[in-house]
Design a protein around this nucleic acid. Sequence first.
DNA 1: TCAAAAGTGTTAATTCTACACCCATGT
DNA 2: ACATGGGTGTAGAATTAACACTTTTGA
Lengths: 228, 228
Amino acid sequence: MDQSHPPFAVTVDVVLLTIRTGDLSVLVVRRGEPPYEGRWALPGGFVRPDEDLDAAAVRELREETGLSSGFHLEQLRTYGAPRRDPRMRTVTVAYLALAPDLSAPRAGTDAADADWRPVATLLAARTRLAFDHDEILRDALDRARAKLEYTPLATAFCADTFTIGELRRVYETVWGTSIDPRNFHRKASKTPGFLVPTEETTTRDGGRPAQLFRRGSLELLNPPLTRG
Amino acid sequence: MDQSHPPFAVTVDVVLLTIRTGDLSVLVVRRGEPPYEGRWALPGGFVRPDEDLDAAAVRELREETGLSSGFHLEQLRTYGAPRRDPRMRTVTVAYLALAPDLSAPRAGTDAADADWRPVATLLAARTRLAFDHDEILRDALDRARAKLEYTPLATAFCADTFTIGELRRVYETVWGTSIDPRNFHRKASKTPGFLVPTEETTTRDGGRPAQLFRRGSLELLNPPLTRG
DNA sequence: TCAAAAGTGTTAATTCTACACCCATGT
DNA sequence: ACATGGGTGTAGAATTAACACTTTTGA
């Protein structure tokens, strides 16, 4: 079984999704050096010699956004085609991250050349992302859509407290569908452990004041909130 | 973003699950050298310099079982804790494979020290697998269980043709539950695209002859066949 | 003839879907 | 007053879950 240990470079890349101005958007950075200089890419970088993979992903995220908490992060999958990086044999562990709209509180954004782009626009564009990042982005989108269905992950796109209407618009944005607000309200509010009610209400969405909720501690939605 | 490219070793490990004598079982190999010499481990090995990750997993599977087709294979996740391998910094890409009972047709099994062990026994045992393979096995079991629910993956445990009763016993074995045979029969046979009927029947399970089916080409089961 | 597993029928409970309708606010 | 989104009620359709019953084989 043993034979040799050819050296690989190992990187992490992060697909950070958020909802901005009604679009599901992803954070991309412009590459400042070859290969693919000047092209948009997913934020990422080399894993350090003593660093865990998850820790590397968290670090990259913090370096690009200033965020160190308040987001969801999970491993997506690993990409290692022999020539995916022209410089050397590189394997990248891709992560999927979901966060609320960070428009306002971006602090430590050292990368001036970082930007949010609507996912749909990027995937439809003829200009491709660097490396195999288009493929990674497509896989991330698939994963995010699938997980909304059977986990409470949609709340990761919402602020600390949110209304049921805001939560519904997350589903509508990510799936590109429309959902009956009344039935959705019933399902969401009656699923035990999904939403934790607060005492407060808000009128920020217009109309009648809506109750504010916090994320529950649920792991799985069974049955799913809405059938795809 | 760039800094240095510390060298990593990259391996693949395969969790090959099958159903043998009524137990969900996994293929393990006995390590012939340090570290963890003499301990059971998941089959796996180093990715070759010009080899794709998926190809490496297929190769390992073939080396251990002689199988080169007729199984399901998907990437599970990647494990890269800094000291998971005492020899060097090693990242392993774990794969989940599902196959029918291979008791009979094992051909090129070069590894004399390979064996099938019931998953439940392994996870309950105080003797641990090598490296972090216990964790990988647990994750694989979780994934397999979850995917049975919303994909037609259960058929991967069945032979080329199979009865609905055999398929039901797959679910019962993997989940450790019992399912009403009559309701299951209805759901399975009425889900379009799930099962392809053949002209043949069999009495190999005893009782009245049962119709034989082949896997359909369906990707997703919606709604799920059985709620967990 | 009996046991065993396949397969069909039926019914009550639950859940889904599509609405009608009222509520409480900002403008 | 009215537009806007929040929230509740309800009825028909569809699905689920539980179980009676018939069918076809091997022993």
